[in-house]
Design a protein around this nucleic acid. Sequence first.
DNA 1: ACAAGTATAAAGGCATGCAT
DNA 2: ATGCATGCCTTTATACTTGT
Length: 610
Amino acid sequence: MDKGARTRRVEAECCVDPVDPEAGRGATPAPWTTSQRQRGGFAHSTPFFSSGARGSFQPAAAVGTVLWPALLAEPLAQLANEMSAPRAPPSEATSPSASSPTTLVSAPSGATCLEASPVSSRSPSKASVIEEHLGALVGRLMNSGGWVGGERRAGAEPIWTGRARPYDESTLRKHARYLARSGGAALVARAVEAQVHQAAVACGGKVIAYTDMFGQVYWTKKPAYAAPIGSRGNRLLAATYFGLTVVRPRGGPALAYHVSWHKPASPLQDALEVLYADKPRAGWLRSQSRHHIWARGGSGVATLRWAAARAIPSLTVSRGSTHWTRYRRAPKVHTRSRLPVFVRRDRKVARGKPHHGKAMQSKVGEEGPEEVIFPAHPDKGRGSTKALRYRTGRPLTKAALRKLDRLYKTRWPSNENALKALVAVGFDRNLDRGLVTTTSRGIDGARTRLQAREQALSDEIEAFVPTTLPQTMQAIRRFARKKRGCDEQQARRLKAPQDKGARMPTGAEGLCKNLMLLMHNAIALLLLRSRLHQVRTMSLGRLHELLLGRSFLACLEERQTTLWIEPVPCASERLLQQELVRLLNEASLSLKGRSLLFKLREPHGETKAL
DNA sequence: ACAAGTATAAAGGCATGCAT
DNA sequence: ATGCATGCCTTTATACTTGT
């Protein structure tokens, strides 16, 4: 029976019979429903349970299953090539013509093409397998549920894989993990960066970068490190922290640029450090970003000094508020409501940097970090005297100063909302649950502080010039006291248990997160082409409701596949749906050599026409 | 023989509802 | 509102099957 299903060709001119994910249960099963695999502990061979019971496996077909691999066809093919390359160091990409072997072979130049690259002549098949896996992965990622939920909605996968059924959940996970282990996540991260760069160039102009952190809850019965999770009332829960950097070109959409993985309770600076640790990425950010904005968590002196040392054009806001009426010096500019804006050198942050001692060096001082006193409620006029302290890595233009509040507040639409949108479609899912025993972030911090303290002590000892004997004796006693302090702290540190677990970025989840960034950006750039404001700014969650999560009927023909998408019941919503469909068709997507055509089904009973 | 893919038992994550 | 117990569902680990 299973064999019959396997040998059946999907090629035939047929219509797959997908099932509405919501209405699921009662509909007619698709041909591959005959799979022997039954979840929920009921073996197929056990006739004691009715087949309609809870555990029966019923694939549903969501538009995303087909749309994503088509939309990302180009980058995925490229990635598959890079990933199939034999053990290259992850930082090095393959040759620029690497994507040619996966294209059709019938072209007359095909032979020369194959001979021209004998190195990869053996890998095309391997690359195309990886390409298919990646396609299946992206087709499943933006869903509720994990690996199993993904499989359940991937009923339409055979349309483009040509297989008899969707990939088994365990198969895809296995491959995702394998790819991740061999440096796949870094390759996808590179693809995301390339994608963002390309988009930024197309928008012509510099970008604004944003970085924020979010804690991802991890429910576990094993001993694990915990941290306060904002979305759960700041309760202490086992967690992983992620840093997310978003970039927005002028007039463009918010594009996800980088994601990093940290221990629970990591400060924002950790994310920034990882972001700038990579030379090319740091170079790109430095040359392309006008500002790099982050939240209060990174407004401490240590972080800002770190940023200043790297000439990052940072913009953040300090914790404490003040009153603009307290400041006497001449304001640099005025807000649109005629309130004064004061700017002064940020002495605390600038301390220790080459100072403007002489007139010649005053230029250096002008480029350094500054503090901006900006009215907290400029629109309320003189009635409100509260002011915020913004801190910038380098002086702002007068135009930027005048509307500094608005500039900073772009953090919400550009960063927070992008993050929320991603989370709404499953970005914060734990797709990999491995724990490694390690130290907590708190212990790490204590260690670095202790190291600094010991360094300071040894510096002090070295710098000590003995004068009189009593003074020397006194100094020796002082040093001994300090040394003892260090040792005691060290002992305390070692006494803390270090056998708890934390999730580490070794598994498939990093790969999947980066793939989701790639997806997010691809769709954001597509939506940008719409004339409808609602569509241009549509969130991923909404997009899922209107399009990606919809079920459809497919009509397979020789050269093209038509997806008849299930319409939403509400007429005004359907207008948006139509616009989405229009955009998709305009993009003229294709999959496995077949062009994709999207159509909206009739709202009522006419669906029988197929 | 090998790798891709699948099945299945056991472990344990996560949502839910209930008691407090 | 908070914390805990419960149980369904997902993930893990690994053995097994199938195709080349």
